[in-house]
Write a protein that binds this DNA or RNA. Structure first.
Lengths: 304, 304
DNA sequence: ACACCCTGTGAAAGTAAGTTTCATCCGTGG
DNA sequence: CCACGGATGAAACTTACTTTCACAGGGTGT
């Protein structure tokens, strides 16, 4: 069939350009002109129409097609998308992203955004990596079996605690969050075997959180600590320790990264719990979603 | 010219897919079918011809073209190569990780954790990618110059709003957060030129948040919307629109991803504002950090 | 030198893909 | 109930892609 032995490029997803320049010398003059354009700027070539490219290479469309076949493509469109893909792949090494570091003083906002996103995303990933599924499992188990769950966190961790409480509540688990230590302590004193107390503290050194867990533990409840520091004081009053992995504690970028890391852990626990009773959780979620539906603006569409 | 206000995708090299899924709710039903196919498997869509894709989406070619225009492309070929490029860039969905999807019923916790972390991290990254630094800059500018800042968010977005308020407050900006709509409206009515109102709503359709921004705007304050959907109602009452890029809106894993995305944006704004007055912000942070120091557990064992 | 390939090439014809137009169908609001 | 406007697909149309074919050179054997 084919007169020329086609050299298939389908099996080398990573090196179309390399492939092409490799067999450049074996191509006919007119095809070489095409090839050179393609190799010189794949992204640009991908943007061109076949007629356009032919003109640029001072040849006819037919030759461009022949070129496509010569390099193992079915036709021009295929070449085009392969080129686009290839061109996209060979871009931006994460350049000047300051890895766990600070934001340089002169940075413009775009840089700041890139740095933050990088650090935030890392915190999430790394937290997940070092999370111990076995411990999570146990915590999920405890929560699923608990008749009451109390979550405590002070300051910034309070948001996370509150969030967790709300999520649990939403799938029908009886959960509480008390922003105030005294109330929390009082309530913790009423916990008992089979209940769960969760203490959230980035530093693991927040006196309040520790006290609350201590109290809960004394009453026989299972205690869970969520902290960034696996050897911090709070871990000593916790039956289960879950850790985040936000490396920086610098004021600037660090604060949010640790928050995100905490939320990620919460998310995992939540989904774990919800997965335990798929039907019930789903139902509960749907019901609660409907509940706020009337507070949504009408057709949700275009310009409402 | 264009009946629909095209939202150009040209300036966001990083997030066509994200961009599309953000626009999803604002598309017509038939276009949504197309969009879903595209988002589900961009690489595959890039391989298809327009007729093919139209058939797969159970619609006509005309609709596919309309879809292309709706998401800011010139035509189908352009969409195709952009998709190919996008698909190539993204690290392939590590194994069984359901990319913006659901958690498989039989999954064990380790899998769940991996999936969640993947989605959460992506939401953060993609949000940052599609954030427009110019808009951020303007918002930062407005906040820096504001004599008062009010943040509003209902439900889950309330946590984010509250968090933002607290952060701003901590670096010495006068910021408020009102969990209650009535209070928020009342307060918004007292805003004036030079003030800033920030409305946070994932769906962009929360009536309360819209009302608050409307009120604030009527009083001459600058209004900022933070939403996942660039064409949602809230964007119409906002001077500045910042978007997140949490692709899923499924109850389970999606909820948290969108939260993280929102927080990432908040973080960027916060750092931007703080960077404007490095010295003052740093000082403020140190002072506030010291303030809670006494609530930390003493010499704390290893890590205090 | 001449006839004969054989290869490379582009013009033109042919086919398929993409785009526009337009009539129809629906739901909405008067 | 009708007018209106958006959504939609059928069909007309345009552009892009592919195939066919004829022809120009340049070897090669007689």
């Amino acid at each position: 069939m084919a007169k020329k032995p086609k050299i298939s490029a389908s099996q080398e997803p990573g090196g179309l350009i390399v492939h092409i320049s490799g067999l450049l010398p074996s191509l006919s003059p007119a095809e070489q002109r095409v090839a050179r354009l393609v190799v010189a700027d794949p992204a640009d070539a991908a943007r061109r129409t076949i007629t356009d490219l032919a003109t640029a290479a001072e040849t006819s469309e037919a030759t461009v097609i022949r070129f496509c076949r010569s390099v193992g493509m079915d036709g021009y469109p295929q070449l085009r998308i392969r080129l686009a893909a290839e061109a996209a792949r060979r871009v931006e090494p994460p350049d000047a992203r300051v890895v766990g570091g600070d934001i340089p003083p002169g940075a413009d906002l775009a840089q700041i955004i890139a740095t933050i996103a990088f650090n935030d995303a890392r915190a999430v990933e790394e937290t997940a990596e070092q999370l111990d599924p076995a411990v999570c499992e146990q915590v999920v188990e405890a929560i699923v079996g608990a008749s009451r769950i109390e979550v405590y966190g002070a300051g910034a961790s309070g948001f996370v605690a509150s969030d967790f409480q709300q999520k649990l509540h939403r799938i029908g688990r009886t959960a509480f969050y008390f922003p105030d230590v005294h109330t929390a302590l009082t309530s913790a004193a009423l916990l008992g075997r089979g209940d769960v107390a969760v203490g959230i503290s980035h530093t693991g050194a927040t006196a309040d959180a520790i006290e609350v867990l201590e109290q809960a533990r004394a009453r026989g409840a299972a205690t869970v600590a969520l902290t960034n520091f696996p050897r911090s004081p709070i871990t000593e009053v916790a039956d289960f320790v879950l850790t985040t992995a936000a490396r920086e504690t610098t004021y600037r970028s660090g604060a949010m990264a640790s928050r995100l890391a905490q939320l990620t852990v919460i998310d995992c626990l939540f989904v774990g719990v919800a997965a335990r009773n798929r039907m019930r959780a789903r139902k509960a979620l749907e019901v609660t979603a409907e509940a706020v539906q009337t507070h949504r603006v009408g057709p949700g569409r275009r310009r409402a």
